[in-house]
Design a protein around this nucleic acid. Structure first.
Lengths: 347, 347
DNA sequence: ATTATAAACTTAAAGGTTTGAGGAGTCAAA
DNA sequence: TTTGACTCCTCAAACCTTTAAGTTTATAAT
């Protein structure tokens, strides 16, 4: 026999009745106000503990007009699409959010109208206090919307040219340069690029890094060898086939994404090319499979999980302390050389 | 110039003042109660619209003592681990949740103590109305906890033996049987199995299907060829190496997961084996990369996205309508035959 | 003329917490 | 004896919405 049914939650009022004090006193005691005597405070805390009191978050949130939640909207190219970047980013964000006592609200949308609706839903419903925007684009309507509404947000995956926002990213330009320099050091001169879709700011960064390294080495960039596509194996496969159909073909293909690169490798195999020997292929991101593809993929290690953690932390800091100005965190990329681009490693 | 600053939200009270009615009348009008005259109702709705009224979700939720949120906790083996199954499942869940007006709250945890903490956090904080549990295990403490607390939940990825819970899954046993039958039809008799970790209920199901097909064909199961590991490429790689080191080696390796299978393929390559020719390898799940691995991977197509959708829908139905009893949804798997197991497809 | 009925509202409480303002009591200094 | 200060509380409003119960006014029935 229980005093309270399992379903009835203990409230401040219940505690107040037991200890014979006002609800306010109980609240203040539990929140460590110093205008409650130490004895009473200890007693109240003990009773609260014994009664199994858990504050009602909804009431607290209504009171302080904050949701203690962050929003993340995942872009969905197709139902079957599952970009490891987002899962890993999500991991970092979710972990940090929990640490900071925040909830993470995730929703999905396809690009286009649905995307703006998804953002409006979060903002207008005041479902979250801040939003994390991944992979910003040129003329990004999400960012316009958030800026217009003066809604707190942080960008992951590129630094906006205006420099007036919170941004966390790895240095994609630098990463691209490192990759290309590595290929040049391997003796390659005929280097192709398969970039991610050009609306992404990061794709421009990647291109910039690519160009910089090529020009620096005095190499010309063949416009027939510049392509871009979505980050799926299939797209990588098809775009590689396109390159193979050119009259002149490259000896190395630089890609801006690992998943895409795995598609390129598959295409090369089907073309009868031995990757790492006849053709060098590189990726970006160092997903788990990069190490265990055939051959293992040369790529740039991107601290995706850490990116998520930092983005989350920075955004929460911003929410807690209005005074902070724009801030940018840039992670240095590191090159991971594997057989797909290195003859010396090839047996 | 605006009447209200951007930051001040319009409340029922504001509308009430403008239309000269009580707050209750406004609330009732907006909620289509029929004890408000049609004229007034229309007028109030129009004013609300013009003033840009958006109901305060926190207040609504406090009022009706429900969060309109679902919880999903992602297991994290390592920061770098990103299981496509979960991303895809997440997609289906998130999509359906939004459709139904629910929010999806995601958090992460490593297995063990942290996991129970994560679930307690959701339950005790009443952060969500229901929880989706993926990949149930034997003696699953998550399920004990939820059952004890009488908290609504649904299980994805297996049907519990007790049959008293909501469950949505694909028929893993059937899938395993199909795979093995296919290999047997290809002439294989020396078939090894690399299962997922044995604490998962689905791994038992997979094993059951495997055994059934083997026994049915009169084949003996070699205990030296039964292994299990985590679903990462590295684990698959290492476990395959283990199999290759046996005195007698199989001609086919069945695995219970695509990602794991890709690791097996890499190991086979490094061993000098031509997958699809010298060795058949099969996976489970039909992730995007399965079609573009080298060689393309024979696998079972799992409707992961749909699994998520259905789980979400069923759980919400349960929350809305207490009367429903236990329910189980089982999806039939379908075999996708590719070069990794079929000589006829091999050139 | 009285009573019942219905329409169109309003009032007030409830949901649980936080917090500024204020009050009662004690003690000490002037 | 007043004044002030201090300690330890309580009151009541506020956050915003929903809803059970009640009120007013008009209309119809008896």
């Amino acid at each position: 026999m229980k005093l309270k049914s399992d379903k009835d939650e203990v409230t401040l009022k219940d505690i107040a009745e037991v200890v014979g004090k006002s609800v306010a006193a109980v609240s203040r005691a539990l929140n460590d106000y110093d205008d409650i005597s130490p004895d009473t405070r200890a007693y109240i805390k003990q009773v609260a503990q014994e009664m199994g009191y858990k504050p009602n978050l909804l009431a607290q949130r209504l009171q302080k007009r904050a949701t203690d939640s962050l929003g993340l909207i995942l872009p969905v190219l197709s139902p079957r699409n599952a970009d490891p970047f987002f899962s890993e980013l999500l991991g970092g964000i979710a972990n940090e959010a929990t640490t900071q006592g925040f909830d993470l609200l995730v929703s999905t949308c396809t690009q286009g109208d649905e995307e703006n609706q998804a953002y409006s839903r979060l903002i207008e419903g005041r479902r979250v206090d801040g939003i994390i925007v991944a992979h910003p684009r040129w003329h990004d309507t999400r960012i316009s919307l958030l800026t217009e509404q003066q809604f707190p947000f942080i960008i992951v995956g590129a630094v906006l040219p205006e420099l007036k926002h919170l941004c966390v990213t790895d240095d994609v330009t630098e990463g691209a340069t490192q990759i290309v320099n590595h290929l040049i050091a391997q003796g390659h001169t005929k280097i192709a690029l398969i970039n991610t879709t050009l609306d992404l700011i990061s794709s421009s960064n990647f291109l910039a890094g690519f160009q910089k390294a090529m020009l620096n080495a005095g190499l010309t960039i063949n416009q027939n060898w510049l392509e871009s596509c979505n980050t799926t194996p299939k797209d990588g496969y098809q775009t590689a086939q396109l390159l193979f159909s050119r009259v002149e073909t490259p000896t190395a293909i630089v890609t801006a994404d690992d998943v895409l690169a795995l598609g390129v490798i598959a295409a090369a195999h089907d073309q009868g090319l031995e990757v790492g020997h006849d053709l060098a292929v590189t990726g970006y991101g160092d997903i788990l499979l990069a190490e265990h593809s055939h051959p293992p993929l040369t790529t740039i290690e991107r601290p995706t999980y850490t990116l998520g953690q930092h983005a989350c932390r920075l955004l929460i800091n911003r929410l807690r302390n209005q005074s902070l100005g724009p801030e940018t965190v840039l992670f240095k990329p590191s090159l991971v050389i594997r057989q797909s681009s290195d003859l010396a490693l090839w047996l």
